[in-house]
């Protein structure tokens, strides 16, 4: 059913910290690794070792530059499906293959019923859907449903692959529908924001802005190193005389 379900209390999603992301692409690689064998796999690669390698990825790491001169910043910018609250990628689907789950808000594609019309990818402003030219169906981030509810995994591992792998802890997973959850508090505290709010898709995933830049190292309490006085005699004096000849 591609009509949207009534908005559930639970809105699972990611919070991505643009301050700490170092742009290492580890999350993208682990996403690919986990999901190519997951419910939406395979994440087909075409010509993987050739000159024109291309393939399906659910998570892509862009890097942007913002501002000018001294004040400019380089910001690494991971982007996967935002599991929007009002996503047209779901309502435009003619088959019902693209759907939003009523129980936790996750947006998924049924690989058995997708006809590969590509309309949903046109309807997503964020570029979160990639077509599998080989399988003829659309694919996208599943929020790792086969991990987060997976009873075979240790409880600590029941988080998305990208979250578990991030070496900078720039990705957080949780219930953004619950204002008391850790992720919701993090968003409130750090001023998390929506991408392209003007589209009206109401993304569930939030982005945390880069922190204010610091131009001094601040006071560490240690005293400055003493400057070595030049002396006219002794070994240093002799060296100085030799070298400045």
């Amino acid at each position: 059913m591609t009509s949207l379900p009534p908005l559930a209390q639970k809105q699972l999603g990611l919070v991505i910290d643009l301050d700490t992301c170092v742009g290492c692409h580890a999350c993208a690689v682990n996403c690919k690794e986990w999901n190519t064998g997951g419910t939406s796999g395979p994440l087909t690669d075409l010509d993987p070792y050739g000159a024109d390698a291309a393939g399906v990825w659910f998570n892509r790491i862009h890097s942007f530059e913002a501002g000018e001169g001294d004040a400019s910043r380089t910001v690494h910018f991971p982007k996967s499906c935002l599991h929007c609250a009002e996503p047209a990628c779901v309502t435009v689907c003619p088959t019902g293959a693209s759907y939003k789950r009523a129980e936790d808000g996750i947006v998924l594609i049924n690989p058995e019923t997708c006809i590969g019309c590509k309309l949903c990818s046109w309807a997503c402003p964020y570029g979160a859907r990639e077509y599998d030219y080989d399988g003829g169906t659309m694919k996208k981030c599943t929020l790792c449903i086969d991990r987060i509810y997976n009873e075979n995994l240790e409880e600590i591992d029941r988080v998305p692959a990208c979250v578990s792998t991030c070496p900078a802890s720039a990705r957080h997973f949780g219930d953004l529908g619950d204002p008391e959850s850790k992720v919701s508090k993090l968003v409130a505290e750090r001023g998390g924001f929506d991408l392209m709010p003007e589209m009206g898709y109401k993304p569930t995933n939030k982005y945390l802005p880069p922190r204010q830049r610091q131009n001094s190292s601040g006071c560490t309490g240690a005293s400055a190193l003493p400057v070595v006085e030049q002396s006219a005699d002794g070994l240093l004096g002799w060296l100085d005389r030799i070298l400045s000849r």
């Binding site: 643009l18 390698a53 913002a66 400019s72 077509y131």
Partner: peptide, 20 residues
Amino acid sequence: GLGHLGKVRLFEAPHTQENY
């Protein structure tokens, strides 16, 4: 969402080859 820092431009694309 980086407009408060100034003009935003792409520094590095996420992939070297064209994707879908």
